[in-house]
Simulated scan of single mutants.
Amino acid sequence: MTKLYEGAKLIRSKNAGPFAITFDIIFPSHEQFKKIASCHALAVEHVAALLGVPLDKIKRYDLPLANAIKFSIVRKYPAGDFLDDDLYGCQEHRFLVNLDVPDEVRV
Results as ranks from 00 to 15, higher is better:
L65E: 14
I58M: 02
K35H: 04
L96Y: 06
I26G: 05
A66Y: 15
A41L: 05
F95T: 02
F23E: 02
A68S: 13
S38M: 03
G52M: 06
I26W: 04
V107N: 12
E31T: 12
L99N: 06
V97Q: 06
K59D: 09
G17S: 10
S38V: 05
A49D: 13
D85A: 05
M1T: 12
L99F: 04
L51A: 02
H40V: 03
N67M: 08
E45Q: 10
H46P: 00
A79I: 09
K59G: 06
Q91P: 00
I21T: 15
F33M: 09
E31M: 00
I69E: 01
E6M: 09
P78Y: 07
V74C: 06
Q32C: 11
F82E: 14
I58G: 09
L55D: 07
K34E: 15
K70I: 06
Q91H: 15
G89L: 03
K14A: 12
R94G: 11
G80F: 04
R12C: 10
A68K: 13
H46R: 14
S38Q: 11
L50G: 11
H46K: 14
R60P: 07
V74K: 14
V53Q: 03
Q32P: 03
I69S: 00
K70G: 02
F82D: 11
D86Q: 01
C39E: 12
Q91C: 12
K70N: 12
F23K: 02
V105G: 03
R60A: 09
P64R: 09
P64E: 12
D84E: 06
E6C: 04
C90D: 14
A8N: 01
I69V: 15
K3D: 06
F95R: 13
H46N: 15
D62A: 13
A43V: 00
R106P: 01
R12D: 02
V53E: 02
I11Q: 03
P102K: 08
K59E: 13
F19R: 10
A41K: 03
Y61F: 15
I58F: 09
D81A: 15
G17A: 08
N15S: 13
I11A: 02
G89E: 04
A66R: 10
S38C: 08
L87Y: 15
L83K: 15
Y61H: 11
A8P: 06
H30C: 07
S29G: 10
K9T: 03
S13N: 00
D84G: 02
A68V: 05
V47E: 00
K70T: 11
Y88P: 00
H40L: 00
V101L: 10
L4S: 07
I73V: 14
D86W: 08
K76W: 08
H40E: 13
